[in-house]
Design a protein around this nucleic acid. Structure first.
Lengths: 189, 189
DNA sequence: GTCTATACAAAGATAGAC
DNA sequence: GTCTATCTTTGTATAGAC
């Protein structure tokens, strides 16, 4: 059983991915983990701070994935891309699975500043990393697209973020898989 | 000056695209159009009903665009696609411009049922329509992609929805344009 | 159609006991 | 660390006067 602070972060993350930052309360968290809402303030000083921590942890988790892939080079670049996509596909297969930052991006203007910065940074680090992977993969002959790698990275990342949201609202379990399969076809040399 | 009911819908739409359904209140609407919050209930019976109306109107606006394009056939299919994308690009150029349903899709689980249905229907009607356009365009020799038109439609629509969200959070004005330009390159015969 | 007044619940947050 | 108690503000919504 994780410690209370972690349980709070886990629950907040889940609630945000379900309905966004403004749709849940400390009361919701408290009920789910069996404590009183006042106790949450011992671990996290305010809702905005908690929100920020949730994103920071989410970002860090993905940074580990990216670092692991980078650390495995030289690697087949098609495999590297699959390794990147694996946790996202896994996300989409869990209940209500969408990207935390995709949800928060929708609420962007109403988000506390500290959270806005984290969300923007998440998007940027993923797109930048993807652009690098595509560039190196093309140089190695593993990918065969034409044009800018940065633009292709924007397409891939935008499509994945959008697909997760659309999948849940339409109930189409193949939304993300279809999008990814088209993208992988496009990249083939 | 539009009537009060329309002003309420306009303001609600704006507020939802900025921060989502749960981040605004009737008080926010009232302040912006210079009435008291109780007056809103004369025009719209509840927040969920107002939310539903906002989406229904948004959907109808797009249905007009789609019908206009359909009505113009036979047409150059590249032009048809540009006509479809034009209002989306326009959206992205306005302040805080994202797709209303992209935002609401993020909040999906916490949305009133009546709103969930509208959001899902919006996504489905766009993807279905796009698939038809791509299919006919390819048959006419205007598009040169391989594979399923339905899958390509999912990629295009997912990418556009995602790009709008990402654009706002990163401040990258070229996010949507870059994504669209790559997509249009992909479709070239 | 719009207002004032109000009911009622829930929110974020703090103080202080245990 | 967690609790009870409480403060204050805000939210959705209704009743009834103008």
């Amino acid at each position: 059983m994780p410690d209370t602070s972690t349980q709070i972060l886990d629950t907040a993350e889940r609630l945000i991915t379900q309905g966004g930052f403004h749709a849940f309360s400390f009361q919701d968290i408290a009920e789910r983990i069996g404590i009183k809402k006042a106790s949450i303030y011992y671990h996290h000083p305010a809702k905005a701070a908690l929100g920020r921590e949730v994103i920071a942890r989410y970002r860090a988790r993905f940074r580990e994935v990216l670092a692991a892939i980078d650390g495995a080079e030289p690697i087949d670049y098609g495999d590297a891309l699959s390794l990147y996509l694996a946790p996202i596909i896994q996300l989409s297969q869990s209940d209500d699975g969408v990207c935390l930052c995709g949800v928060l991006g929708g609420e962007y203007i109403a988000l506390p500043e500290e959270m806005q910065a984290e969300v923007g940074a998440f998007f940027e680090e993923h797109q930048t990393w993807l652009a690098g992977l595509l560039e190196r993969g093309r140089a190695a002959g593993a990918f065969g697209f034409t044009g800018s790698a940065a633009k292709m990275a924007k397409l891939m990342f935008s499509a994945v973020e959008g697909a997760l949201i659309i999948k849940r609202a339409t109930g189409d379990d193949r939304q993300l898989d279809d999008v990814i399969s088209v993208l992988q076809d496009l990249l083939r040399p």
